[in-house]
Computed example of a mutant assay.
Amino acid sequence: MMPNTNRHKAETSILSNSGFTLIELLVAMAISSIVLTGLISVYTNLSRSYATETSRVTAQQDIRSAINLLAQDIRIAGLDPLGTAGGGFTVTDTDDIEFIADRDYDGAITSGNMERIRYYLDGTELIQRMDDDADTDEVLLDNVSALSFVYDDTTTPTTVVIDMTVEEPAGRTGTVTRTLTKRVKIRNQ
């Protein structure tokens, strides 16, 4: 009988060390669920933050590029080195600007030489039109919520202040708004 008792103790010992109890598994799953919920929450917040910051950077870069292009063109408004082209402003509205510049220095405003330049807002798009031809319309910037031009003199301005606001979509967090104002001194007036 003696060998039989030792064998029974050995079998019991093997069975008790063979796995986890149901309670241990439930506790481990509960802890894992809490940790996973925390990680998912952190990931979601970081993703939203990344989307918002990306939208901010995009809006800032886009509005800067558009304003710099506008300023570069507006500076040459009225360019008429020979005095025969009749350069100057043709439209000076608060949300629309058009001007003539003799870019090829030939003394005349020639169609097709991009010497008549217009910038205006069409809905939420900033449009550049060349030579008074709608076929040349190019969208410079989308998501523009406000555009205004302020002139020191609407007949022959020497300074134009450009004020533009862009609203860039930022995923679930809504939109990001950026406003930029730039004062442009016209060289040829």
Rank of each mutant, 00 (worst) to 15 (best):
M2C: 12
T5S: 13
N6G: 13
R7M: 11
R7E: 14
K9F: 14
A10I: 15
T12Y: 09
T12F: 10
S13T: 11
L15V: 14
L15Y: 10
N17K: 15
G19M: 06
I23L: 15
I23F: 11
A28V: 07
M29T: 13
M29W: 02
S32K: 04
S32N: 04
S33Y: 06
I34E: 04
I34K: 03
T37Q: 11
L39K: 02
I40M: 04
I40Y: 08
I40Q: 06
Y43A: 15
T44S: 09
N45D: 08
R48E: 12
R48P: 04
S49D: 10
Y50I: 11
Y50W: 12
E53P: 01
E53K: 12
R56G: 10
V57L: 14
T58C: 09
A59N: 03
Q60C: 10
Q60S: 15
Q60V: 11
R64L: 03
S65T: 15
A66P: 01
A66Q: 03
N68K: 11
L69K: 09
L70A: 04
A71D: 09
A71L: 07
Q72E: 15
I76C: 04
A77E: 01
A77L: 03
A77D: 01
L79S: 00
D80A: 02
D80M: 00
P81L: 09
L82A: 14
L82S: 12
L82D: 13
L82K: 12
G83A: 08
G86N: 02
F89K: 02
T90V: 08
T90A: 05
V91S: 06
D93R: 11
T94H: 03
T94R: 05
D95I: 00
D95C: 06
D95K: 00
I97G: 00
F99N: 00
I100M: 09
D102H: 03
R103H: 10
G107A: 00
A108Y: 11
I109E: 11
I109K: 08
T110N: 11
N113Y: 04
N113W: 03
E115A: 09
R116K: 07
R116D: 05
R116F: 02
R118P: 05
Y120A: 06
Y120W: 08
G123I: 07
G123C: 05
T124P: 02
T124E: 08
E125I: 02
L126W: 01
I127M: 07
Q128H: 13
Q128R: 15
Q128T: 07
R129E: 05
M130C: 09
M130V: 11
D135W: 10
T136H: 03
D137C: 03
E138Y: 12
E138N: 13
V139R: 01
V139I: 10
V139A: 06
V139C: 04
L140S: 05
D142W: 09
A146H: 11
L147S: 01
L147M: 05
S148C: 05
F149P: 02
F149M: 00
V150W: 02
D153V: 00
T154C: 06
T158M: 11
I162V: 15
I162F: 06
D163Q: 12
M164I: 15
M164F: 00
M164V: 15
T165R: 03
V166G: 05
V166S: 08
G171Y: 00
R172N: 14
T177Q: 13
R178Y: 02
T179M: 07
T179Q: 14
K182Q: 15
K182W: 09
K182I: 09
K185Y: 13
I186T: 04
Q189W: 12
Q189A: 14
